[in-house]
Amino acid sequence: MTKELRSNFHDQLAEIGEGIARMSAGVTELVPRSTQILLDGDLEAAEYVILGDDEYDATSIVFEERCFRVIALQAPVASDLRSLVSAIKIIADVERSADLCVNICKAARRIYGHELDANLRGVIQKMGDQATVLFKEATEAYLNLDGPRAAALHDMDSYLDDLQRQFIQIIFESHAAGNIDLQVAVQLAVVARFFERIGDHAVNVGDRVRYIVDGWVPAHPYAESDNEPPDVVDAGVDSGVDADGG
């Protein structure tokens, strides 16, 4: 009897893991697709991506619910509990990334018909590629529960951040040269932000994977002091260090 219950429980865990991996793999495809849609001005494909987002939203709710139910009914402990708590957070990160891809497609609609400079296009492609690589690594790290691979995501993300800064600079130059108007410049700046956010979500997924594998949590200044947040109002920026000392 007990054995049957436990095996049922592990089936449920596996199903949740599989569902999340599928969502995450789907977003890994969505990022390069959205990038290409933006570069080609492919409005039809943009429409598909925008409509397809409802499915991600629905799936994310379904799997979140399942996590809650398993936690409530099975009272999991240790790595099982860690993987379920992380699953809830990973679902949110993946779902949000799908939304960001939709936003990129919507931006493609708004800048439709405007020619972009070759160097603008070049950096968009690079940002798209880097965001794709980040998400692919995050997905596969989750799939294989590979802690070291997940840990490498931080460094990969800083390259994406650099690209975003570089891109903003090129937008200014292109705008100053009169090649793009203000409306397009603003849209592109926002698009850069979307790519950068996708990268951040991938890093978050990586952090959760590390938490599942060995309970690793990001170091916070006040992580040691009974998890009491510092008194932000009084102490300002350096308060974290103070709280740590005290």
Binding site: R22, S24, A25, G26, T28, E29, K136, T139, E140, L143
Partner: peptide
Amino acid sequence: IGTHGGVIVDA
């Protein structure tokens, strides 16, 4: 198995 493409093919 273990790649994001594998997950999509499996689905």
